[in-house]
């Protein structure tokens, strides 16, 4: 196996007076989709924010593409090639869909071929091209958020719970989009609560509990072992199907 694209070693993080991450050990393999699972409050979102430099790291280190990015500013981390879709999507509601995408293209004008590819994946974006993004539905906003992270090639994509609050049909569309990305060998770290969605997409998996990674391995292994699922995720039979 080649060198992982992202490695977290003993990462601690605090939010205000609360100690959230207790020494995270996590590796994201290059060109694969890694799912980060865990209960609410396990520290999954904080892990993503920490990678992005939005939460300070008092101890431990984050290595991306062989470089130690632990103390880098958020904007520098982004320019190094990490795109982040936060849980609230971070859409600029007063900007049009076009303006949202233009801003995401930091290397100048947008590439038309890539834009057409995005339109194929997410047709509503073309339809609402010049409308304020704030008027989009929840699913369309999520599409825009992901399109924005893909509008230029990035080395690593961090996505926080893209399926949250979306209808099953739209979740299907998103899954298709992620499969397209996997086919292009984009490295992805996906935080999810939806286990069937994760099982469909994930190649590797890490499970978090109480600010630590308590299990990591392949998705195939976890998908077959229902006792392990029960143990790690508290998934009862038939839940989250």
């Amino acid at each position: 196996m080649s060198e992982p694209i992202l490695t977290l070693t003993g990462v601690h993080a605090d939010i205000d007076q609360y100690h959230i991450l207790h020494g995270i050990e996590l590796q994201v393999p290059r060109g694969e989709l890694t799912v980060l699972l865990g209960r609410n409050g396990a520290g999954k979102s904080t892990t993503l924010r920490t990678i992005m430099g939005l939460t300070k790291v008092p101890r431990g280190s984050v290595t991306f593409n062989g470089k130690d990015i632990t103390s880098w500013s958020t904007s520098r981390i982004a320019r190094a090639g990490i795109a982040f879709v936060p849980e609230n999507m971070g859409i600029f509601g007063q900007l049009t869909v076009r303006e949202n995408l233009v801003l995401a293209g930091t290397h100048g004008p947008l590439d038309q071929a890539r834009l057409d590819w995005l339109f194929d994946l997410f047709p509503p974006l073309k339809k609402f091209w010049d409308r304020p993004a704030g008027n989009l539905s929840g699913g369309q906003k999520q599409m825009l958020a992901i399109a924005r992270a893909m509008v230029e090639p990035r080395d690593l994509l961090l996505v926080d719970e893209p399926t949250k609050g979306l209808a099953p049909a739209i979740i299907d569309d998103l899954a298709t989009a992620f499969e397209e990305l996997k086919a292009r060998e984009v490295s992805i770290l996906l935080v999810e609560q939806n286990f069937s969605f994760s099982r469909r997409l994930g190649q590797t998996v890490a499970v978090m509990n109480d600010g630590q990674v308590v299990h990591s391995g392949t998705m195939a292994e976890l998908a077959q072992d229902s006792a392990l699922q029960q143990d790690l995720l508290g998934l009862g039979l038939g839940a989250h199907q």
Partner: peptide, 16 residues
């Protein structure tokens, strides 16, 4: 305009 709306997201996209 984006910065007025959501400063953090502007940084996440790589702008200082």
């Amino acid at each position: 305009r984006a910065g007025v709306e959501n400063r953090e997201m502007v940084e996440i996209q790589g702008y200082r």
